[in-house]
């Protein structure tokens, strides 16, 4: 078993693989990240069977936390398998912070947090803003500190999907991109290394200042979202809220009582950026 270790924000991973190539890719893209001694999670990329290790190799995802029905991926998508496995450990195992399925960027020590269904564009928006004057904090999970209420970064590789791939390659001319993985279960996927400032500052939290629920594909508009609706939506967006018990409750209630929230509609990145800047100026 080949082994690779990486620290992303507060979380440390050990990834084992029967094939060397996915780990070489990880090592290349995560080369500026710290290497932990004792990992929080172990993840394994293993062949479905001995035969399938060599013939039409197929990667089964195993680890400390697993989903029984997680379908294997072709070896060419090994990098995606590793990223999915790392996400799964966080989603099912993390208890050090309130975990929100959200993206975030930072400016002046304050965090803009975006959450919504897959396809809402939260990941692409964070990636884009990260190249336009904001510090990128993460495109998948935002970790809310249980004592301070601060947002803690989790800047793993950015996962770009479908149209977002071309858009980001045009925006981030100096960006480092992974191999294009066409026709994955999630569509076309290409990973992108977060900007250098995001990696350098990955242990620096920021105070949540604005929460957005983006919806892609509608005329530009925004509306205020009340605290009880925010609360309900964020409990849906959190995989560990219930497990954290009273700490989760006090952390989330403080969040919804102190962070203004807006739902925004947008048709393209330019519209979204204009709305973000307008709301940031009004609310923060």
């Amino acid at each position: 078993m080949h082994e690779f270790r990486v620290q992303v924000g507060p979380a440390a991973f050990r990834i084992g693989s029967q094939w060397k190539r996915p780990l070489d890719q990880l090592a290349e893209f995560y080369r500026d990240y710290p290497v932990p001694e004792i990992p929080d999670y172990s993840v394994r990329l293993e062949s479905v069977s001995l035969l399938r290790r060599f013939i039409r190799p197929s990667v089964a995802i195993n680890g400390d936390y697993m989903l029984p029905d997680a379908a294997p991926l072709p070896l060419a998508q090994g990098l995606l398998a590793a990223e999915m496995a790392m996400n799964l450990q966080m989603a099912l195992g993390w208890r050090r912070h309130l975990l929100l399925h959200a993206s975030a960027v930072e400016k002046d020590g304050r965090a803009l947090i975006m959450t919504g269904q897959s396809g809402s564009g939260k990941s692409t928006l964070a990636a884009m803003l990260g190249h336009r004057g904001w510090r990128f904090m993460g495109d998948e999970f935002v970790l809310v500190d249980l004592d301070s209420g601060d947002a803690v970064p989790f800047p793993r590789l950015i996962s770009l999907k479908n149209e977002a791939i071309g858009a980001m390659m045009a925006t981030a001319l100096d960006g480092r991109f992974g191999p294009l993985m066409p026709e994955t279960p999630k569509g076309d996927i290409r990973h992108m290394v977060p900007p250098a400032d995001a990696i350098a500052a990955m242990s620096r939290p920021a105070r949540p200042a604005l929460l957005l629920f983006p919806s892609f594909g509608f005329d530009a508009a925004f509306r205020e979202v009340g605290p009880s609706e925010v609360f309900m939506r964020l409990t849906q967006a959190s995989t560990n809220y219930v497990a954290l018990g009273e700490k989760g409750f006090s952390t989330l209630t403080r969040f919804v009582q102190t962070v203004p929230a807006r739902a925004i509609d947008y048709r393209d990145g330019i519209e979204a950026e204009a709305l973000v800047n307008q709301l940031w100026a009004e609310c923060v």
Partner: peptide, 13 residues
């Protein structure tokens, strides 16, 4: 070790 303490704290939670 600190890294272990974090993991054990989570296990207690």
């Amino acid at each position: 070790p600190d890294a272990v303490a974090h993991i054990l704290d989570e296990a207690r939670v």
